Simulated scan of single mutants.
Amino acid sequence: MRGTALGAGVLFAGGLGGGWALYTKLSDNITADDAAAAELARYERERPTALVRGAQNILVIGSDTRAGDGNRRYGKDSGTERSDTTILLHLAADRRSATAVSLPRDLMVHVPGCLQSDGHRGEPSFTLFNSAFEVGGSACTVRTVEKLTDIRVDHYVVVDFSGFKDMIDAIDGVQVCLKKPIDDKAAKLRLPAGRVTLDGEQALGYVRARKSLGDGSDTGRMDRQQRFLGALVSKVQSSDVLLNPAKLYPLLDAATSALTTDPELASLRGLYQLVRGVRAIPTEHVQFLTVPREPYVYDSNRDQLVAGRADALFSLLRADRPVTVTKKNTSPGDSASPAFHGNTAAEDSCT
């Protein structure tokens, strides 16, 4: 979603007087996670092998840290952080489609023994997925996802609360369609039904709220996140953003400032090399879904994978084969010809 803007931004920076200074500033905004790279290199032999040349898998992590400017208002800083949102983004080798798979924070998974911030190494455990980020940061989350899916994670990106808000404000908000009005004190949201343009603060409340919106489940929240990201993709791909330097530069500045990435991506050139082929992906070929899961057998407040269907999804992504995504009111298909419930970036919930 930020790829199109970043690609255009390289050209934009190069076309201005003093463009190198602008390019350098944007590039220097990005934080390289060298410690995570070193930890992943330590376990290189146990990591999955990429099967299809040119296909890319990027793990996008939304950090719930309260550290940093503007983040403390979202709760007490306990000195830890978890992955509030985690999405495995698969880019097809031909760059004609993209599939974004949400991984529930309450999914029960095997977390390997990870290097902790205090320098000690934890023991492997079967626990909540989002605790991997709390225990061992990006490297632990990548290793957990790879163990869960047997899919090689090529790159990883961490975005925090403040950075997310700034990106939305930089493009003058994102329009969503609300079927019902929202009056939610916990999420600090009061919005009418219909088409509404959310600013950064409102967008953050909208995508993070869980118990107080919809049916109160993480399922509802992930669906909102997916629909919002679809709307964001459409907004960023619009000429109103890409051809308007007054909007493009603030977006680039906010996006790059918000990112902590693997060292290979930690420059504007690195990001551009990854996303230059993404710009032509039609929005209807950008799909969002949640990994097939069901209530955990020992605790209905937790999730577990639906083994057969999850394995089918992971197999398709590993082999870079098309994933069929259907709306929730249609049949998901069978294991012989699997289809998965989800959304596309082109959908409009008002229709």
Results as ranks from 00 to 15, higher is better:
Arg152Ile: 08
Val109Arg: 01
Gly173Asn: 06
Ala346Asp: 09
Gly136Asp: 08
Arg47Val: 06
Asp169Leu: 10
Arg47Gly: 06
Ala37Glu: 13
Leu88Val: 07
Leu128Ser: 13
Asp215Glu: 09
Ser315Val: 04
Asp34Asn: 15
Tyr296Gly: 08
His90Met: 07
Asp34Trp: 13
Val10Thr: 06
Thr326Trp: 09
Tyr23Pro: 03
Lys235Pro: 04
Leu317Thr: 00
Pro124Asp: 07
Gln287Trp: 04
Arg318Val: 11
Ala38Asn: 07
Leu40Glu: 06
Leu89His: 00
Gly137Phe: 02
Ala35Pro: 04
Phe129His: 07
Met167Arg: 02
Val278Arg: 01
Thr80Asp: 15
Asp311Met: 11
Gly15Ser: 11
Leu213Cys: 06
Asp348Phe: 14
Thr324Val: 15
Gly214Ile: 05
Leu274Thr: 08
Tyr272Trp: 15
Gln202Lys: 10
Ile30Cys: 12
Ala336Gly: 12
Val52Trp: 03
Cys140Ser: 07
Tyr43Lys: 13
Arg269Gln: 15
Asn343His: 15
Ser349Pro: 10
Leu191Lys: 04
Leu148Tyr: 04
Arg321Pro: 04
Ser125Leu: 13
Gln175Gly: 11
Ala336Arg: 09
Pro245Gln: 01
Arg2His: 10
Asp218Asn: 05
Asn244Tyr: 00
Ala98Glu: 04
Leu103Phe: 10
Trp20Val: 15
Thr127Pro: 05
Ala186His: 14
Pro112Glu: 06
Gln225Cys: 08
Asn71Glu: 08
Ser337Leu: 13
Asp84Pro: 10
Cys177Asn: 07
Asp262His: 10
His120Ile: 14
Ala5Pro: 03
Asp69Ala: 15
Cys114Lys: 04
Asp215Phe: 10
Ala132Pro: 05
His155Ile: 12
Phe228Pro: 02
Gly163Ser: 07
Val142Asp: 05
Thr4Glu: 09
Leu148Cys: 05
Thr85His: 06
Glu123Met: 14
Leu115Cys: 00
Arg276Phe: 09
Gly113Asn: 05
Arg73Ala: 15
Val135Phe: 09
Gly119Leu: 11
Phe340Ala: 03
